[in-house]
């Protein structure tokens, strides 16, 4: 399986990463190799392997509906690049 540059550009956009032309070139090649590596799986006989979504054989991990102590707001906001009062502040989002 190969990957074209347009797809890499699209993925970079979805990830909000700006790529320079040389980076695009380099990453396209690397992704191509990685996908080629993963492609080896399609050569395996997996008829007898059932699909899974998780690598560990555990299920129904649940917790009781019991409150814990939350972070104090000032602690939660401590690393915020920008804040206003008790709010995180971000560049204005227009819907």
């Amino acid at each position: 399986m190969s990957i074209d540059k347009e797809t890499v550009k699209h993925i970079a956009h979805l990830a909000r990463i700006e790529l320079q032309p040389n980076e695009l070139e380099k990453l396209s090649l690397q992704l191509h190799d990685i996908l080629g590596f993963i492609d080896k799986i399609s050569g395996l006989d997996i008829d007898k392997v059932s699909p899974t979504s998780h690598i560990l054989p555990v299920s129904n991990v649940l917790r009781d509906d019991y409150p814990h102590v939350s972070l104090p707001a000032e602690k939660a906001l401590e690393n915020a690049p920008s804040k206003k009062g008790n709010f995180f502040s971000v560049p204005k989002i227009i819907e």
């Binding site: 920008s82 206003k84 709010f87 995180f88 502040s89 560049p91 204005k92």
Partner: peptide
């Protein structure tokens, strides 16, 4: 929840 102000959007988690 987002609160939109004139120059910024404020976030309450």
């Amino acid at each position: 929840k987002l609160i939109h102000e004139a120059d910024a959007s404020l976030v309450d988690f």
